[in-house]
Simulated scan of single mutants.
Amino acid sequence: MRLTGEHVLTIDAVLGDVVDVGETPTGRRRVIPVVGGTVAGRVAGVVLPGGADWNLERSDGSCELSARYELRLDDGSVVSVVNTAVHEASPRQPILTTPRFDVGDGGPVWLRTGVHVGLLVLRTDDRTGVRSVRVEVHRVGAVE
């Protein structure tokens, strides 16, 4: 058996201004709002405003990413996304994430099941200064 992967969608999420909560017993907490964006691939739509990454910088320098936000697909269905990861403080390559999808009635049921891996890249538009993340989501499978 070997693992295979198939690209299923790309999420481009625009980020708002960081809210620095400060030091907590578990580390330095930051809340990074998700204010919009787009989705393309096997499904298409928009990233709804109102989500966030409740980011935690641990005492060892590693960071926990814990993002939750919603997508409205072109067919009108809404998909809730929970995306998590633990990564080094200043990653030099894409961050591997584990996105999970909660899909309501009428939405793409195939997103509810299986294993998905995201490749997350932080981006800043040099011209506007707008910060965003791109998450390339792949579905992992196994073949003989």
Rank of each mutant, 00 (worst) to 15 (best):
R2Q: 15
T4Y: 07
T4R: 10
L9G: 10
L9M: 15
T10L: 11
D12A: 15
L15H: 03
G16Y: 06
V21M: 11
V21S: 06
E23V: 10
R29W: 02
R30L: 14
V31C: 05
P33I: 02
V34E: 06
T38L: 06
T38V: 12
A44H: 12
G45M: 12
G50M: 03
D53Q: 08
L56V: 14
L56E: 09
E57D: 05
R58V: 01
S59A: 15
G61S: 06
S62A: 08
C63I: 15
E70H: 13
R72N: 01
D74A: 15
G76H: 01
S77C: 07
V78S: 02
S80L: 15
N83L: 07
V86M: 12
P91C: 04
R92T: 14
P94S: 06
P94W: 12
D105E: 12
D105Q: 02
D105T: 06
G106T: 03
G107K: 00
G107P: 00
W110D: 00
H116T: 09
G118K: 04
L119M: 03
R123M: 03
R127Y: 07
T128Y: 00
T128F: 00
R131N: 03
S132H: 04
R134V: 14
R134M: 04
V140T: 05
G141N: 07
G141A: 12
A142F: 13
